[in-house]
Design a protein around this nucleic acid. Sequence first.
RNA 1: GGAGGGAUGCCAGAGCGGCCGAAUGGGGUAGUCUUGAAAACUACUGUGGGGAAACUCACCGGGGGUUCGAAUCCCUCUCCCUCCGCCA
Length: 421
Amino acid sequence: MLDIKFIRENANIVKEACQKKKIDFDVDYLLEIDLKRRELLKSIEIKNSMKNQANQKIKEAKDEEERSVIIAQMRELDKNSDNEEADYKKVSEEFNNLMLLVPNIPDESVPLGSSDDDNKEVKKWGEIRQFEFPIKDHIEIAKDLDLIDFERGSKVAGFRGYYLKKQAFQLSMAILNYATDILMKNGFIPMQAPSLVNEQAMTGTGYLPQSKDEVYATSDGMYLAGTSEVSVMSYHSDEILKESDLPIKYMGFSPCFRTEIGSYGKDTQGILRVHEFMKIEQVVLCLNDKEESVRLHEEITRNAEEILQGLNIPYHVVVNCTGDLGLGQVKKYDIECWVPSQEKYRETHSSSYFFDFQTRRLNIRYKDKNGDIKFAHSLNNTGIATPRILIPLLENNQNEDGSITIPEVLHKYLNFKEIKK
RNA sequence: GGAGGGAUGCCAGAGCGGCCGAAUGGGGUAGUCUUGAAAACUACUGUGGGGAAACUCACCGGGGGUUCGAAUCCCUCUCCCUCCGCCA
């Protein structure tokens, strides 16, 4: 959510942001509603003020007669203000709903574009391995080594269902432990966070109402979050923090659920795009300061890179174009890992900052040195998501005899150093 | 599943129709004292909206109602606690 004052004074910037992000939103209409709302509010406040004065007089009235005269006047006043209050309620509700749809302004450094085709590579790491034998994709590898069961997965869990078995399960757990250790070393507070969350958490982080289709709703009015960002970011909602507590860095672990509506027909095979997976997420709250947001954005991006470099997976970093930004994101880097069977990089991490877009919605503030209360800034990035990361891990480390070599950093979490038949 | 109790400012906790935007304590900030610190003492200290300011409006978990007037009474929702039952 943006500050309505900012929108009033910078309507053109907001309109431009809508265009850049390909979001259909009528800024002028919002401003109209805002004006209506303020006019009603002003009028109600004047009447309230009169009421308050009259009430004071009733208190001070000497006798019953004086009292009943004032009361009669009050009743008259009330009749008139009833309609106005109903109008105000309607208008301010509409206003609030509209405010949730206003996109944040992309940073100037974000390239223009409409889809991920327009994202720009900003960094490349790792040697792309030249295989001297015909390679297998992760699906073949998984089947040959009995690591993932897709048939029974879809039998039980439907389309995109899967079972992770044997060393794949162990590998998955080892990767989570490894990423946890790296993030804890880098100052993150680990926690297991809820995936089953209420509407406020979803709205506060910006997933609702915008992306309703992509979220599972439960029969009791709750939602299954697509990322622990939702519950971890909401952890401090409605709180006033101390400036000295910032930045706060959390590492959230949770199962994640995504309907993948809108991705019909994409990546239907394998474990790239699934409805249910495990993820470690980096979530950061910091000072209301652009430099600080930018600094921490680079930091959480580096953390993810550190994790990938340890695993020796070649990757590149792209800066997402304006059309590929979420409603609240100011800037986003995707990290994409090299997938040999597809001969391209595929997204495994997504690192973004929001300024106070989320913290306004969630009401997360802090008191600064001067005693002023400000909205914090928020950022988040993937730590590691599994099983998706198993794709580059298995494919890049496959050997001619069909075995898989396990990267050294994972050895201490596992009782095997390779996977073979 | 059944029966009760509760939700108040940064925190703890009083108030149970007008004197309450809210006692008291803790914390925080500033000052006095001190070589410095601690202690003690003094002052200030909720949030949001409007306004240049004076000032004004709203907020005592959320929503609705009663009343001239609600933190206080009624209804409802959410969450927390205690006891009983059931399950792990």
